[in-house]
Design a protein around this nucleic acid. Structure first.
Length: 481
RNA sequence: GUCCCCAUCGUCUAGUCGGCCUAGGACACCGCGCUUUCAAUGCGGCAACACGGGUUCGAAUCCCGUUGGGGACGCCA
């Protein structure tokens, strides 16, 4: 089995698994599975200060949630320093790299308010006599190792973007090993990809400009290049790079909001890739067999939450009650009322409610908001929405009579509440629909909610009464009574 | 600023190396139907080849330029 595909996902643990990282991981995973290859997980934690175990765990958690299992690793760069040192020593030996004694921050820092940081290392240490430089280094003078960028141009073929070429003059003599002995990103990536026999480097397009440096390193090491494939970036609605500013940026935040991993997975797969036909709702297996780098697009994609919501609703209406119950219970636990509500209802009633909610759950946002309104008392009454259906005074009259009725009624079931409501509306010559709309808004504070009777029964008699009374007094207050 | 990349409906995109595109699908939005319950569902509608030059019998598809957007320019990754 030679030439088998080996790809890697190599996040740096400086933050949780974010949307862009997840998409990169996802594409790598799909590619590996499609080709029956391996996905290696590598943690690029060479930046001592910015990395933490907590972040590593956060990334693993995100990957597990999405169901992206890796085959090898996680490997940590922080445990491979010796490899980087040896690699660099060889380049130093061959004169392909040189020691630099400049202070880490000498010419650059200046650019205070200038938004355009631009300077390139002036290569002043390039001319140092190797033996002299070595002597100084051995004498204890701190120094970094820089790559000696040759003349000419550097080109590589990208599986997505095609041929990319740059003049080497545009590439500075980048640092390989910092003065504290830590490897830089470029060094780590190349050494690791080589050691781990990575065949395809699939990563974000923000690395396109970095790739020539790495290509130069492969050449210096006299090793063949892996295939490179850069993925278009995912942007926020304002076409700017996705950031906290755009709301949730961590994958797990979506889990907490109630998005199903299958939905998120499906949505992400279609960001920057498409099967080529009109299919959108695709299972993992379908995605695996359909995926190919040729079909990855080049233009950056905006992360549109509306479409994600749609995918979520599609999966939500298809998922089983247990899964749905899991989501619901999270919400209810958060509201601290789960136990309360289950006790209030016979088990079958609860299940029935969940069943009924299933096809109606559209956006998870509404969905969870709905439940909050259901089981807690901090719902807010949307007067404008209710007024669309019935005038306040009219509505108040109904609410009054409902309260009276329910005070006596100990039979609070789906059938009886519906029967009663319809009867009431008819006697008063009002379309039942109007009353039901108005009550839905009044009871849940939501414009979109499950069926009214489900709401009432699920709330239970006392809660319903409670809310009806509050609604009534609001209406009264409004009429200045 | 320098270099690299990108450019089809508001958004995700299809458009296999020019003709079958009077540009297709999905989300969102609007309308209608179904349900004497919003939603969901069904049907329909609105809506794009950034601009300007070429090349060609013929260009969304090829070339050049302009504009716009993104990325990279660290002893961050």
């Amino acid at each position: 089995m030679k030439n088998s595909v080996r790809v890697r996902f190599a996040p740096s643990p400086t933050g949780y698994l974010h949307v862009g990282g997840a998409r990169t991981a996802l594409f790598n995973w799909l590619f590996a599975r499609h080709h029956g290859g391996k996905l290696i997980l590598r943690i690029e934690d060479t930046d001592l200060s910015r990395s933490s175990d907590e972040m590593v765990e956060g990334i693993l958690e995100g990957m597990r949630w999405l169901g992206l299992a890796w085959d090898e690793g996680p490997f940590f760069q922080s445990q491979r320093f010796e490899r980087y040192r040896v690699f660099t020593a060889e380049l130093l030996e061959k004169g392909l790299a040189y020691r630099c004694f400049c202070r880490p921050d000498s010419p650059a820092a200046a650019d205070a308010n200038g938004e355009i940081p631009s300077w390139s290392y002036d290569r002043r240490c390039r001319a140092l006599e190797p033996s002299e430089a070595r002597r100084r280094a051995e004498a204890g003078e701190p120094c970094a190792a820089r790559f000696r960028v040759p003349e000419g141009k550097t080109a590589y073929r990208d599986q997505v973007y095609g041929d990319i070429e740059v003049e080497n003059e545009q590439v500075e003599d980048f640092v390989l090993l910092r003065s504290d002995g830590m490897p830089t990103y470029h060094l780590g990536v190349v050494v690791d990809d080589l050691d781990m026999q990575i065949t395809h480097v699939i990563r974000g397009a923000d690395h396109i400009s970095n790739t020539p440096k790495q290509v130069l390193l492969y050449r210096a090491a006299d090793k063949p290049l892996p295939e490179f494939a850069h993925l278009p970036l995912i942007l926020g609605p304002d076409k700017q790079r996705l950031s906290k500013r755009h709301g949730a940026t961590s994958v797990m935040a979506y889990s907490e909001m109630g998005y199903l991993p299958e939905a998120f997975f499906n949505f992400l797969a279609l960001l920057g890739w498409s099967p080529g036909d009109d299919r959108e709702l695709l299972s993992r297996d379908e995605l695996i067999s359909l995926f190919s780098l040729e079909r990855v697009g080049k233009a950056n994609a905006v992360f549109g939450i509306d479409k994600l919501d749609w995918f979520n609703s599609q999966y939500l209406t298809r998922c089983d009650t247990a899964t749905l119950g899991g989501i619901v219970s999270r919400e209810l636990y958060a509201a601290g009322v789960w136990r309360d509500s289950t006790e209030a209802l016979p088990e079958e009633g609860m299940h029935r409610t969940l069943e009924l909610l299933k096809p109606r759950a559209r956006k998870i946002g509404d969905f969870s908001g709905r439940f909050r309104a259901f089981f807690t008392d901090d719902f807010s009454y949307d007067e404008a929405a209710a007024a669309k259906f019935l005038s306040d005074s009219r509505l108040r009259g109904f609410v009054r009579s409902l309260i009276e009725r329910y005070r006596e009624d100990d039979q609070f079931t789906l059938g009886s509440t519906e029967k009663h409501l319809r009867g009431l509306a008819e006697r008063e010559g009002v379309k039942p629909a109007l009353l039901m709309h108005a009550l839905r808004v009044g009871l849940t504070g939501q414009g979109v909610a499950p069926g009214l009777f489900d709401v009432m029964v699920t709330l239970g008699r006392s809660r319903t009464l409670n809310r009806l009374e509050r609604l009534c007094s609001r209406l009264a207050g409004k009429n200045g009574e």
